[in-house]
Amino acid sequence: MVNVITPYKIDIVQGNFVSREQADALKEGMSRLQVRDILGTPLLVSVFHTNRWDYVFTFKRQGVEPQSRRVTVFFEGDRLVKIEADALPSEAEFVASLDSGRKTGKIPVLEMSAESLKATAVAVQPELKPLPPLPASYPPLESGAN
């Protein structure tokens, strides 16, 4: 009887997901800021290894082997010199791996027909009058009498 009922375990996603497309966008000589714009803020930045950023990603789901990936980028000064990475999935492959096997209904079409667009069209507002000019000077904030 104990084996029949199993508790629900939530999916646990930790760290920075880095796709193959993101890793391919990195080029030697890029600045730290450019690398951070592409990969995001690194999960691990060590005080002892200031020229190394680690991007670690783990994904645990009930009944599925845990996923773990690491991308490490190395700098000399402010410039990227080396990238070490595990085999990375593309964004499409990663999204497909997130499917938990749930049955879903028919996916609705997310487009409006021409008739629907006409029915929901907003009337064009008349041109607005310009605002009056700002005063050249303002009254004092405090009165002169104490």
Rank of each mutant, 00 (worst) to 15 (best):
S31H: 08
D78C: 06
R61V: 10
A85C: 00
G105C: 09
Q62D: 12
A121I: 10
M1V: 13
S68E: 04
P7H: 10
P108V: 05
S68R: 04
P108I: 06
V124Y: 07
E115M: 00
P7W: 03
V122D: 10
R61Y: 02
E65R: 01
N51H: 05
S46Q: 10
E21I: 09
T72E: 02
P130M: 12
E65L: 03
S100W: 08
G77E: 06
Y55R: 03
N16M: 09
K60N: 07
P42W: 00
S143L: 14
T120F: 09
G15N: 00
K9A: 08
D37V: 04
Q62W: 05
V45M: 12
P108N: 11
S19W: 02
F94S: 02
K82A: 04
E21T: 09
G77V: 03
E76Y: 03
S68Q: 07
L134N: 12
G101R: 01
G29Q: 03
I10D: 15
K27V: 00
Q62E: 14
T104D: 12
P89N: 05
L98V: 06
S116R: 15
H49L: 15
Q62N: 09
P108C: 10
S31C: 12
K60M: 02
Q125P: 02
T6A: 10
L88T: 02
I10S: 15
E91C: 00
A119N: 12
V13K: 06
A121C: 07
L110R: 07
K106M: 09
E65K: 04
D11G: 09
V109G: 02
Q62P: 05
A25S: 15
T50K: 10
P135E: 07
A96M: 07
V47T: 13
L128T: 13
V13A: 08
D78H: 02
V81W: 01
V81N: 03
S137D: 14
G77W: 00
K118H: 14
V35A: 04
D78M: 00
F17I: 11
G63N: 10
P89I: 02
E115A: 15
D99Q: 07
L141S: 09
A136P: 00
R61D: 05
H49V: 09
K118M: 15
Q125S: 13
E65D: 12
L33I: 13
Q34W: 01
E142F: 08
K27R: 15
F94Y: 06
N146P: 03
P42K: 02
V18Y: 00
G77N: 04
V45C: 13
P132N: 12
G63C: 08
R70M: 10
S116L: 15
V109W: 12
P66H: 01
